Simulated assay, not measured.
Amino acid sequence: MFQNISMKQTIFRAFIAVMENKVTTSQAATRLSDGRELLKLVSVTEVTKAAHINRRTFYTYFHDVYDLFDQLEDKYTKELNQFSQGWENQDDPMEAIIQSVGQAVDYMSHNSRGIKLVSTVDTMLFTRMIQEDVKQAISFVGGLFNRGRLGNDPTRDRQWDLNYTIIFLSSGFAWVCYDWLQHPDEFPKEKLKELISSTFMGAYKLIQSDELLNSAQLQEIFQKQSAEIKCDQSAAQ
């Protein structure tokens, strides 16, 4: 069993290396809606040569390059999903979620080359994974967002607020992570953990508040801040 896993890992690494040399940023940006078209750039022969194995060994584990990609994508999906399990058994579910965020970022950092490649071919990968994780964080952990002001039986408006929060968080986290994978050295992962955790906590507090601001209230805040800035500038002169 261990030998099988080791061989698959060897083939995965070879595939990633070959794809990295084939798929440029410009190709990824200008591709058609079906990103899997990029897989046509790679042959089984190129992968076996990079992995130093024969074709028979390759076909022991994969049907073709497309099956190889699908299994690699499934691997990342399953392994990332493990960080969103067991929150309901923790004394402090929110703290458990924050820890899971850190573990997930560490995992993505360690596997950045492969996840970046898979996400370039399938740009919906992060969105699907993170949306499910966010839904679990919001509702599965003892109805975390259904406590307090939201109540056990939220109104239609409050349920809409909840759905909006899920979409907002999942979409935002997905593309932030994707962008971070494109430029991992420009943004430290510890800062990414901090920002994601802070955003999640802020959304959690917002959704439980009855004091959501309307446009008139926001305008009033902006005007007040603008006046304070002008006063500070005048005092400095």
Rank of each mutant, 00 (worst) to 15 (best):
D106Y: 05
Y107K: 10
M108T: 04
S109C: 06
H110N: 04
H110K: 11
N111E: 05
R113E: 15
G114P: 03
G114Y: 00
I115A: 08
I115F: 05
I115K: 04
K116N: 10
K116M: 08
K116W: 04
V118E: 04
V118Q: 04
V118T: 05
V121N: 14
V121R: 13
D122C: 07
T123C: 15
T123I: 14
T123L: 15
T123S: 15
M124Y: 12
M124H: 12
M124K: 10
F126Q: 00
E132K: 09
E132N: 14
E132T: 12
Q136C: 12
A137H: 02
F140K: 02
V141R: 07
V141S: 13
G142P: 10
G142R: 01
F145P: 03
N146E: 13
R147Q: 06
G148P: 00
R149A: 06
L150C: 06
L150Q: 07
G151E: 06
D153C: 06
D153F: 08
P154A: 07
P154W: 08
T155D: 08
R156G: 09
R156T: 11
R158F: 06
Q159G: 08
D161I: 13
L162R: 12
N163T: 08
Y164V: 13
Y164H: 10
Y164D: 10
T165C: 10
T165Q: 10
I166L: 13
F168M: 09
L169K: 05
S171Y: 09
